[in-house]
Each structure stands twice: as C-alpha cells, then as structure tokens.
C-alpha cells in the first residue's frame, strides 16, 4: 500500500515515514498534533496482545424515524470504516489488569450516538457492574445522532443512569477524551468519569465552536474548548500526551485494584 508509506500532518504539513510515525503513537514529532485513531488501533495500543474480546458486536442500527438517506449513510459508514457502529465495546487486559472497554469510531458518522451506541455503552456498564470490572472509555463524538431524533437524546439519560449502576458496585469509570468530544456525548457519559483524562489539544465542549460563534457574534478566544483550556477551568483531571497514556491508565487501574478501607459508605442505600 503506497498510501501507507508516508503521512502528512494535517496541522503543520510535515511528512512522516509511516513506520516511524506508528511507533510515535501517531503523534506528529514536529508540532505534537495527535492524529485521530480508529477503535482497532486504540485497542492495539492499549490492550495486551490477544486479550480483547468484543461484546455486542452484532447490534445494528435501524432507521426508526424513516429519516431521509440515513440507511445509505449507515451503509457508507460501514463500508468506509469497516466498523458496524460508532463504538466498539468489550473486555480486555491492560498490562494484565482486566477492564471493560469502550472505544468510539471517530469516522463512523462522526462517532455520533444513536440507539446502538447508547445500548452498547449501557450494556458494557451493566456488564462491568455485574462482573466488578473497572471501565475505560476512549471517547470522541460529534454528539447525538440527528437521524435517530429524540431516541438519540434519550441515550444520554440511559448511559448516565447506567454509570450509577457501575458506582453502586463501586467500580470506577476512567474516561479518555480525544479530539473531538462534543454535544450530547460530552453532556452525558463523557463528563461523568471518576477520572477524566484528555489528549493534548483535543476539542472538548458542549456546543460546537461554530454554533457558539454564530450565537455570540464575536471571535472565540485562542485555545477555547481545547483540553488545556478545560484543564485550566477545572473540567478535567489530567491532560496526557499519548505516549504516556497507557502508563497513566495502568497506574490508575492499579490504584483502584485494592480497597484498603472496606466499610461501605451509606449514601447509596
């Protein structure tokens, strides 16, 4: 594949050898731009080889509203990405630590959340609650999926409620927010992590920058809605460069592995 020999950074234009670039975790060595990764690449980067087992990979979107061109859009997304929906969920091991995992597919209709994404996330959280597994989510999303209308909006309530179930079994949710994380996904499970990590430079927000600019009719400040901006405003725990991400996640999993004080707090009864 000739196309895979070189890659050009979308941000600074530098050309990289693909093989070197891959070993640099798909981060531009010149400007630090973090490229968007698909779910299989993320899983390869994070999971121990051969440990990941997919769950609910058979769920498929329908066209519940009969929305114009939705069916062809789904077919096209499947063809382009090789994925059958905008999130992949399953269980795997990270340096030997088991975790339930969800990774979004940024190129599948902008990783928007419709019924299937909501259902897969919810089932994963319920599975983790039942089996006492910590949950790791690598998130990116354009928001709720317009083509499923109000049903997409309701997935926000559904996934947020399922995180409560996870907490009732005292398991943590670790979120990794990647570029871009916006809309209904940010306003539900993405902002409910016990520990929120973001990738450097990631756009994270409720409303998209274009909508905000149209609403207020003035230019947005430099760095607005970027990960560093959110960190400064207290909306994130840490911003981590991709090369340190796995190490950070492993440490967090390790800290949550044992519970020195076992008395159950009363607030959940």
């Amino acid at each position: 594949m000739l196309a895979k020999l070189f890659v050009k950074c979308q941000q600074c234009g530098t050309t990289h050898f693909y093989s070197f670039f891959k070993h640099a975790y798909f981060v531009c060595s010149r400007c630090g731009h973090h490229f968007r990764l698909d779910a299989p690449t993320w899983l390869k980067q994070l999971c121990d080889r051969g440990s990941f087992q997919e769950l609910d990979g058979n769920l498929k979107s329908l066209d519940p509203l009969g929305f114009p061109k939705y069916e062809s859009k789904l077919a096209q997304a499947t063809q382009q990405t090789g994925a059958n929906e905008a999130v992949m969920t399953g269980v795997g091991e990270i340096d030997g630590y088991p975790a339930a995992m969800a990774v979004m597919e940024p190129n599948f209709i902008m990783a928007s959340m419709g019924s299937v994404v909501g259902e897969k996330i919810t089932r994963l959280l319920e599975y983790a609650a039942l089996n006492k597994l910590p949950v790791l989510m690598v998130i990116s999303s354009g928001g709720a999926r317009m083509q499923e209308g109000i049903l997409s909006l309701m997935q926000m309530a559904k996934t947020a409620a399922a995180i409560r179930r996870l907490h009732e079994s005292r398991m943590p949710l670790i979120t990794v927010l990647t570029d871009p994380t916006t809309g209904g996904v940010t306003a539900s499970f993405a902002m409910l992590g016990d520990i929120s990590i973001a990738e450097a430079g990631a756009l994270i927000g409720f409303a998209g920058p274009r909508v905000i600019q149209q609403t207020i009719g003035q230019k947005l400040p430099e760095g607005f809605q970027r990960a560093e901006f959110l960190l400064e405003h207290g909306m994130l725990d840490i911003v981590v460069p991709r090369k340190n991400l796995k190490k950070t996640i492993v440490t967090i999993l390790k800290i949550h592995r044992s519970r020195p004080y076992t008395r159950r707090p009363q607030y959940f009864n």
């Binding site: 409620a161 995180i163 940010t186 306003a187 539900s188 409720f206 409303a207 400040p221």
Partner: peptide
C-alpha cells in the same frame, strides 16, 4: 442550553451530565 463562552468555561456539558446522573 445556552451555547456561549461563559457557559462552556463553567462546564455546560458537565452540569447537564451530572443532572442526568
């Protein structure tokens, strides 16, 4: 919910997410 600079700075998404939860 209001899409503005202050709203984003103070965590519009977080406020809504926490309410759902």
């Amino acid at each position: 919910a209001y899409p503005g600079i202050g709203a984003e700075e103070r965590g519009q998404a977080e406020a809504i997410a926490v309410n759902l939860y």
